[in-house]
Amino acid sequence: MKIKNIDSTLKRMIELLRMGGDVEGWAVALEGIRADFHSDPKYASSKLMSMYGGMGSLNDLVLYGDGQALVVENNEFDFLRAQLYELAKR
């Protein structure tokens, strides 16, 4: 059940990143993590958790469209990012 929740959360985050231009390649990185959860959840969880700290981390992402911050999408992304963190650390 947890893997299913992680998978759906990652899928939506990837969609939002693509809507925001994904200039840093985060969608591709999260797609790799998503695939890893199916083959080696412990490794994938560790890899994902390492994306949450430091400058330029997953925590720093802001989605933009046409030079403007996407407020609704950023709010959803922030919620999903926090949800994913809680799911992955268990």
Rank of each mutant, 00 (worst) to 15 (best):
E76W: 03
L63W: 04
D22P: 01
M13K: 04
D78F: 10
S39V: 14
D78H: 06
L30N: 01
N74S: 08
D60N: 13
Y85N: 08
M1N: 15
Q68W: 11
A44Y: 00
G67C: 05
D78C: 06
K2Y: 00
G21R: 04
Q83H: 09
K11P: 00
G32Q: 08
E73V: 11
L30V: 02
A29S: 07
Y85F: 09
D40V: 00
L10Y: 01
M13R: 04
V23W: 07
E31N: 15
E76N: 04
S57G: 09
K42Y: 08
K47N: 11
E73G: 02
S57F: 08
D78Q: 10
L63D: 05
M49K: 15
K42V: 14
K42T: 11
I33G: 00
K11G: 02
E15P: 00
L70A: 05
A27H: 01
N59C: 13
D66H: 12
S50A: 15
Q68L: 08
D40R: 10
I6D: 02
M51C: 13
M19H: 09
V28P: 01
M55I: 12
P41W: 06
I14G: 01
D60A: 08
E31L: 07
D7G: 03
Y85A: 14
L48T: 08
Y52L: 10
L58Q: 04
R18H: 04
Y52W: 14
L70D: 10
I3V: 14
V28Q: 09
D66R: 13
A88I: 07
F37D: 03
E76T: 11
K47Q: 09
Q83A: 12
A69Q: 14
S46G: 15
F79Y: 13
R12V: 01
K47H: 10
D66G: 02
A88F: 06
L87N: 06
L80V: 08
G65H: 12
H38C: 05
E73C: 02
M13E: 00
E86G: 08
S57Y: 07
Y43I: 09
S46W: 09
M1S: 14
L16G: 03
L84G: 00
Q68N: 11
G21Y: 03
R12W: 03
N74Q: 06
F37V: 00
K89C: 10
R90E: 15
T9P: 05
N75R: 13
A82T: 10
E76S: 05
I14W: 04
E15A: 11
M55Q: 07
F77S: 05
M19F: 07
L17Y: 03
E15I: 11
V72E: 12
S39A: 12
D66K: 11
A82D: 15
Y43S: 06
R34W: 02
S50C: 11
Y43W: 13
G21D: 09
E31F: 05
K2M: 05
A88Q: 13
M49D: 05
I3H: 11
Y85Q: 14
K4R: 12
